[in-house]
């Protein structure tokens, strides 16, 4: 590896890590080719001028694009997380409301643990940046919320709560559609 390559390799840190991982080596190869075929003397100075200008311009645009993408995804994750919290708070509040009225029951405590684990799974899923955070929330909400209700409330309020739950599920399915991976033109055009 010559000095030009070493310097360029160290400058690649200006690009986002994902871009560097995917295209770092081909970019270094291009610089190697250019200096081997076009470099030498004053041409090397001209080449470095072009390379630094290209690097400053494109590294900035790659970083901007990555940040905007993260913000767009982050907004939907935040919304999905907020709904998950609402589910957990509603379920746990319902549990402890009954607990205060009627005294503790083993089932309620067990259900509250399940609810808290469910909420933890949602945020765990969000934390590791799953591509379907809202789908995870729907699964946990559908599984945990009715289970809690069945243990803690009589049948009439249960029907009303299931109506609320259905609305939440529909909203989360919408979120899921919005946050899921998009079909690439490459997949549909070939």
């Amino acid at each position: 590896m010559n000095a030009h390559e070493r310097v360029y390799r160290s400058l690649l840190v200006m690009y986002p890590e994902a871009h560097r991982r995917e295209y770092g080596e081909p970019m270094i190869q291009l610089v190697r080719d250019r200096f081997r075929n076009e470099g030498g003397g004053v041409h090397s100075v001209t080449l470095w001028g072009q390379i630094v200008w290209d690097l400053a311009r494109t590294a900035l645009s790659e970083r901007t694009e990555m940040t905007m993408g993260t913000l767009r995804q982050g907004w939907w994750r935040f919304a999905a997380g907020l709904i998950s919290v609402a589910i957990a708070v509603a379920a746990v509040g319902n549990l402890f409301g009954d607990w205060i009225d009627d005294g503790p029951r083993h089932g309620k405590i067990g259900a509250s643990v399940v609810t808290l684990i469910g909420a933890g799974l949602v945020f765990g899923g969000l934390a590791i940046r799953k591509r379907h955070p809202a789908r995870g929330s729907v699964v946990i909400g559908v599984g945990v919320f009715p289970a809690v209700l069945l243990i803690t409330v009589p049948w009439f309020p249960l029907l009303a709560d299931i109506g609320v739950l259905a609305t939440i599920v529909v909203f989360m399915a919408f979120l899921d559609a919005a946050t899921g991976p998009r079909t690439q033109p490459a997949d549909v055009a070939r």
Binding site: Y23, Q50, I51, D54, L55, T58, E62, A186, R190
Partner: peptide, 19 residues
């Protein structure tokens, strides 16, 4: 037009994703 490595591979990345 002389494409630098950043311009070339930035464009190729987007063109790959667009098919």
């Amino acid at each position: 037009v002389t494409m630098g490595p950043g311009t070339l591979y930035g464009a190729i990345k987007r063109m790959l994703s667009a098919g």
